[in-house]
Simulated scan of single mutants.
Amino acid sequence: MDRKIGENIRALRKLNDLSQQKLADKLGISAQIVSNWERNCNSPSLQDTEKLAKIFSCTIDYLVNNETFYEMNCYLNQIKDKELRNYWYKELVRCKDSELKALQTLWETMKSVAVAQ
């Protein structure tokens, strides 16, 4: 299974301020199933993927294939301050893929400069 769908589900769930239980309730499934998706133990069905896309106001393709969102999510998870992390989640989810790639390049450059100092 492609690892990024679980990460994307987790990130989008948090972005929408939903607990696993609240998301499960919206989908008519158990919280354990949501947990399994997020931990990449299994994948949502096509029907559940369609429901997730509707809940998160995104396309199925974005949910399943957005590699850049997955990569940026990895960076965001390093931010300890929850309020700051949530701010960036909300801002980044609105970005086009090309903008996310540009931000990723900028971030990598900034990290390399900081390490060099």
Rank of each mutant, 00 (worst) to 15 (best):
M1D: 05
R3M: 08
K4C: 02
I5A: 05
I9F: 01
I9P: 02
I9L: 01
R10T: 05
A11M: 15
L12G: 07
R13Q: 10
R13C: 10
R13H: 10
N16C: 06
D17Q: 13
D17L: 12
L18W: 00
L18M: 06
S19D: 06
S19T: 15
S19Q: 08
K22H: 13
K22P: 09
K22A: 15
L23Y: 06
A24Q: 07
D25A: 13
D25V: 10
K26V: 04
L27C: 06
G28H: 14
I29V: 15
S30F: 14
S30E: 14
A31P: 15
A31I: 05
I33C: 09
S35K: 14
N36C: 10
N36H: 14
N36E: 13
W37K: 03
W37L: 03
E38C: 12
R39W: 02
R39H: 11
N40L: 03
N40R: 03
C41W: 08
C41Q: 14
S43K: 14
S45C: 09
S45E: 08
L46M: 02
L46C: 00
Q47I: 11
Q47P: 08
D48M: 07
T49P: 11
E50L: 12
K51T: 02
K51V: 02
K54T: 11
I55D: 04
S57E: 15
T59Q: 12
I60K: 15
I60E: 15
D61V: 14
D61A: 15
Y62W: 15
N65G: 10
N65Q: 11
N66W: 07
N66I: 07
N66M: 08
N66K: 08
N66L: 07
T68Q: 09
F69Q: 05
F69C: 02
Y70M: 08
Y70R: 11
E71H: 04
M72T: 01
M72Q: 01
N73Y: 03
Y75G: 00
L76A: 01
L76F: 03
Q78H: 06
Q78C: 06
I79A: 05
I79G: 10
K80Y: 04
D81C: 01
D81R: 00
E83G: 01
E83M: 02
L84D: 05
L84Q: 11
R85E: 04
R85I: 00
N86L: 08
N86I: 00
Y87C: 05
Y87E: 05
W88S: 05
W88K: 09
Y89Q: 11
Y89G: 04
K90M: 00
V93Y: 11
V93T: 08
C95E: 07
C95K: 13
C95I: 01
K96C: 00
E99T: 13
L100V: 11
A102E: 13
L103E: 07
T105L: 12
W107F: 13
T109R: 05
K111H: 01
K111L: 08
V113L: 09
V113A: 03
V113N: 07
V115Q: 02
A116R: 11
Q117H: 10
